[in-house]
Design a binder for these strands. Sequence first.
DNA 1: GCGCAAGTCGACCGTACGGTGTACGATGGG
DNA 2: CCCATCGTACACCGTACGGTCGACTTGCGC
Lengths: 221, 221
Amino acid sequence: MIASGPRPTVTRTAVALVSDQFLTREALAELVAGDEELESLGAAASPADAELFLSDPRLQVLLVNLSLAGSPGAAAPGVAFIRTAKTRRPDVGVLSLKRGVDELLLRAALDAGADACCLVTTPFDRIQQAIKAVAAGATWLDAEISQVLLHPRASFDAAHLSPRERDILRLIVDGYSNAEIAAQLGSAQATIHTHVIRLFRKLGVNDRVTAAVRALRAGIV
Amino acid sequence: MIASGPRPTVTRTAVALVSDQFLTREALAELVAGDEELESLGAAASPADAELFLSDPRLQVLLVNLSLAGSPGAAAPGVAFIRTAKTRRPDVGVLSLKRGVDELLLRAALDAGADACCLVTTPFDRIQQAIKAVAAGATWLDAEISQVLLHPRASFDAAHLSPRERDILRLIVDGYSNAEIAAQLGSAQATIHTHVIRLFRKLGVNDRVTAAVRALRAGIV
DNA sequence: GCGCAAGTCGACCGTACGGTGTACGATGGG
DNA sequence: CCCATCGTACACCGTACGGTCGACTTGCGC
């Protein structure tokens, strides 16, 4: 094992940042400049401009502002950029900055390969910590974000669902049929069927697909 | 925003550790002692002994060795301990140490409330980083662990979906039936039906619920 | 005690779904 | 030129789903 002691500042972590918002770019640049263990390779305003960084062998961590404006219909360009970046440079850590805790966008970012998610409201020193976490190959999730993604129990109370209905909703999202749910919960199919119907009434839906989508979008599951 | 500069070492992070293995306890104690920003409140060999720490208001981070031996059938005692700890002290961060990357055990630990997961093979300085991440309220996952939990390469390529299939996938996510999709796209129901089946094959699913969930999680919609 | 909510089952019915075939025209790369 | 792919289209079948009744037990609060 390696003793930890005071870290030599010889090897600095090389960071590049991508954001379409001027203010964010400035703030992030200041953030990187304010930490002697970090080193900036530059800032880009668009994914296209950021292509350059991907060719830089020194690059270790990429800061991406996911609120990159995009057409509402198509997939978010920020997510697409993360995917291409991770495809071309799997060794580079990606930290994505989020304005809010939209679960779908978060999952999309992580699925695309993001190694960390921070909110833009996160204090500087924590983002600096997160950058180092990413450089170490680890995953960093801000408290608010991990609450949504990993500890969904907290937001479970959002809907006025009974515990049993929440169990079933979760299993519906997991793609199980009524029969499979019955087997897993040790109940009869008829019971599950009743629960499912009542669950639909409470969610205001008529089929399990919309129930699952609503649950995901609402962060219930 | 708060400037970061050199951190004052006045406020140290109070850590307690629980592990049934002597070696791990020793190693972790050394790890905590080796970082001047950390402060040890003690070490416990069993969940019962660790109850004491939960009454200590200074406690900020709890290191739990999840390999706490238990009967294979029942729930792991480590997981149960994490749950009770988080119930009694939601403010305390829990870092759980894992011997391997068993996905079920990992998910169980996170569901129970763990804020970070590290492998026992992780270098000291990273575990120290993780402890500080947890103290900051964030989530830390080691690279190997996040690979299993957050970046499941489910071979989900939106690229190899035909445009028509993407249309239909989107409408499936929106909760429409095959008949409604047919009406919206101006095709026969049987045609949509065929597309849906082929779409399932490409996504590797058997029902539209899983297809919708996969699409959402992958950020296709 | 009473009501009420949650949970547990049963039966019935119509329909949409999922699975498997087959078929034809258009397009495009080898 | 051929073959693969895609989009289109149809038929058949079994099953699970969604909807609607009703009935029973348990636990909680008043």
